[in-house]
Design a protein around this nucleic acid. Structure first.
Ligand code: MN
Ligand code: MN
Ligand code: MN
Ligand code: MN
Lengths: 219, 219
DNA sequence: ACCTATTTTTAGACTTATCTAAATATATTT
DNA sequence: AAATATATTTAGATAAGTCTAAAAATAGGT
């Protein structure tokens, strides 16, 4: 079994590997983990000894097969618990992340399996992120950022990139939620802001917003 | 907020205070926590500095008001989670304790409240132990050990003292469960074993068994 | 190719929670 | 009351995870 800290590092490396395919740098990891580069180096050495990562000095770090499997298990638990909190315990989607950060470290395969079954084997968490199944498989939807859409293009809102409470509450306030249809009416070259159509309403949003909303284009 | 270790010590002191009203001894605590007396002394000092316990050297330790409140909160969470696992996730009562040992340390008042509501504010956990409410109140049932009953006396099985998997599975195998009526048909002075009547069945049980079953006498 | 800036690692320290071994206090027996 | 046994505390060590400051390696610019 691995410590909370080890599991958090594995999760962080997993998320950063999308952006840093050549190897996740010490500084990137320090930033993500909100800690110092020297602490990261220490932890990477430990993970490397446990064969959870592949590491060569100064070359960045990659997950091993075991490391990836472990990271996905933690992510699976995180997202299942988030779904549980929203669907069964009346939590809002902006309140669940921090609690899931704790619950994701509970060690019991049976608990995870039974929770999954109890919830009806959900495919996506409250933020639109895919929930890996018991074998670690999950589908990566072909989504894009709203900010990448051009004028007149439209699609369905399927996820959020930022899942901070501030951002999610902003979306709530403006009645933007997953599953809704969004059409780009105007796009300002100057500041990247957009005028969008959502449920017959017109709404102007900054680029920071459109940069954090995932859209699925309908074919 | 307190560490897992601190919370576990508080819980242990809480449980031992019933037996050691004058103060819980270092050795008793070491035994309960499965650790060394020197470690206990170290931890007691820390708890004392945080005003969770009242401690004078060589005089044993007692919970402060804050310490008791904290211990009861942890116990509340432990028992709510055990109830959840049995009632919602199809766990057997012998499988839930170790997982609840982990879940009891999750920090979120809202989670505890909502879980309690979701479960319908249960009053007892799967082993018959009372679940404290949000204010920390719980009823201590006037139960006694089956071993204290005399020949011809009877009552309802309302709890287990030992909740080890071994004991609980023994009870399952012999169809003994909470809520069932038990009558003492014979009691051996020699070894304390008993012949009991439970659901028209006669069963001979050792003193070790009758010493770990709580009975409520019907008035 | 060299100098400089940036990144990464190392060295040494701190905290928490644990341990063993030794010292000290309390309890029990004679 | 003294001797002995038991319980408890102290001293010093260890491991995990973190930090600061300094050293070493790499990357970039001329
Ligand atoms: Mn989350
Ligand atoms: Mn999520
Ligand atoms: Mn339990
Ligand atoms: Mn219980």
């Amino acid at each position: 079994m691995f410590s909370f800290s080890e599991e958090n590092y594995l999760k962080a490396i997993f998320h950063l590997e999308r952006k840093y395919q050549a190897g996740v740098s010490t500084n990137a990891l320090a930033e993500e983990m909100d800690t110092k580069a020297s602490s990261v180096t220490d932890m990477i050495k430990k993970l490397s000894e446990k064969e959870l990562v592949v590491y060569k000095k100064y070359q960045g770090v990659k997950l091993s097969e075991l490391g990836r499997k472990t990271a996905v298990e933690v992510i699976r638990k995180h997202r299942l618990w988030e779904y549980f909190l929203v669907e069964k315990l009346n939590f809002n989607w902006d309140e669940v992340h921090d609690i899931a950060e704790q619950l994701e470290h509970i060690k019991s395969e049976k608990l995870t399996r039974e929770l999954d079954k109890f919830l009806g084997f959900p495919k996506r968490d409250p933020h639109g992120d895919p929930i890996p199944d018991a074998e670690g498989n999950f589908s990566v939807a072909n989504k894009m950022l709203l900010s990448e859409l051009e004028k007149t293009e439209q699609g369905i809102c399927v996820g959020v990139k930022d899942s901070s409470s501030d951002f999610l509450r902003f979306l709530d306030k403006n009645n933007i939620s997953l599953g809704k249809d969004i059409k780009v009416l105007e796009k300002e070259a100057f500041d990247g802001s957009m005028l969008i159509l959502i449920e017959e309403r017109q709404l102007r949003i900054s680029q920071l917003i459109s940069n954090n909303l995932y859209i699925k284009i309908q074919q």
